[in-house]
């Protein structure tokens, strides 16, 4: 701040640092609560006063991945001894894992939803970033008539409320049999992310000096060769940042997934809330599912930290 520091200013600085720490703790408390509930025994998840110190358990994650049923009586000592460790933690909660006739463990709906989320988010990210990179290069390097209008048109497709787009898409998908399909959601998420990817990548492309390609063109490269050999490597950081943003958007998306899928291609965001049915939900299992689902995004946020400003402002503010 100012060159001259008075003692009151330094005092205020200390107060501000304490205030920042308090705010950070408040902001992170809900996330901490999700993470800690994911490792609690069920009876400690909803206590008053809240349980802060406890022996962490893995049972919520075992329950998350398996189908279970209530047991009328506790298992016999032999049964308990014969069971693998992951089944014992379920026994301790008064439940047992459901098996089919052949003794195969029955999975819950979670793993398949998680896998769907991965498939759909990754595929749509690759498509959106791939197309977006080419288009951004086109806008960045060549004169395009009505460029501002075209770019506004591209951005406006991203701003449409999902439910507005979902109504006609639902009818069209129903007509061609794309409802509840991976392809259907991939197309929707690609379209949704494409505009974002064009805007963000254009900013990155603008920053690569034109002279690099011009030098290559003089050396006998074709425009295409210059693009692939000179521009793309230069844009690698930007492409990675854009890809992570697109992945997070597709990964987190809820409204389209809720409307367009119900089972086969359902992703995790509509599935996790559907577990809270009537009655008392097992919050430890929901927390475990939420925790696993949030983990990739938390890691990505950390990796992206220097690009967050740019990504969240559609590349408008660069710093």
């Amino acid at each position: 701040m100012a060159a001259v520091r008075t003692s009151s200013e330094i005092g205020f600085n200390r107060v501000a640092i304490v205030a920042v720490l308090v705010v950070t703790i408040i902001f992170l408390a809900p996330i901490y609560w999700i993470a800690s509930t994911a490792f609690k025994p069920r009876n400690l998840a909803t206590t008053i006063p809240p349980t802060i110190v406890f022996q962490p358990e893995i049972s919520p994650f075992v329950k998350l991945f398996t189908k279970r049923s209530q047991m009328r009586s506790p298992p016999s000592p032999e049964e308990y001894a014969a069971a693998p460790w992951w089944e014992r933690v379920v026994f301790d909660g008064g439940e047992k894992i459901v098996r089919d006739g052949k003794g195969q463990v029955q999975w819950s709906g979670y793993p398949s939803r998680f896998l769907n989320s991965l498939i759909i988010a990754i595929t749509s990210t690759v498509l959106a970033v791939g197309m977006g990179t080419f288009t951004a290069y086109g806008f960045s390097r060549f004169k395009v008539k009505g460029e501002a209008d075209l770019l506004f048109f591209i951005l406006s497709t991203r701003m449409l409320p999902p439910v507005v787009v979902a109504i006609p898409m639902f009818l069209m998908y129903r007509a061609v049999g794309l409802n509840d399909s991976h392809v259907g959601l991939i197309i929707l998420y690609t379209a949704f992310n494409l505009s974002f990817s064009v805007w963000l990548m254009k900013g990155f492309m603008d920053e690569i000096p034109k002279e690099y390609e011009e030098a290559a063109l003089v050396d006998g490269y074709t425009r295409m060769e210059a693009f692939f050999k000179i521009v793309l490597p230069e844009a690698a950081t930007g492409i990675a940042a854009t890809a992570v943003f697109c992945f997070i958007t597709a990964w987190n998306e809820y409204a389209f997934a809720l409307i367009m899928t119900n089972r086969r291609a359902q992703t995790a965001p509509p599935f996790i809330p559907s577990q809270v049915g009537s009655g008392l939900p097992d919050w430890t299992v929901i927390a475990a599912g939420t925790f696993l689902f949030l983990l990739p995004v938390a890691i990505f946020t950390f990796l992206l930290r220097n690009h967050l400003l740019r990504g969240m402002s559609f590349g408008a503010i660069r710093k």
């Binding site: 996790i272 938390a298 969240m312």
Partner: peptide
Amino acid sequence: LLLPMMLSMAVVGLF
């Protein structure tokens, strides 16, 4: 501090 805005509204909202 930036973490909350990156998370899924639906899933965190549920919690």
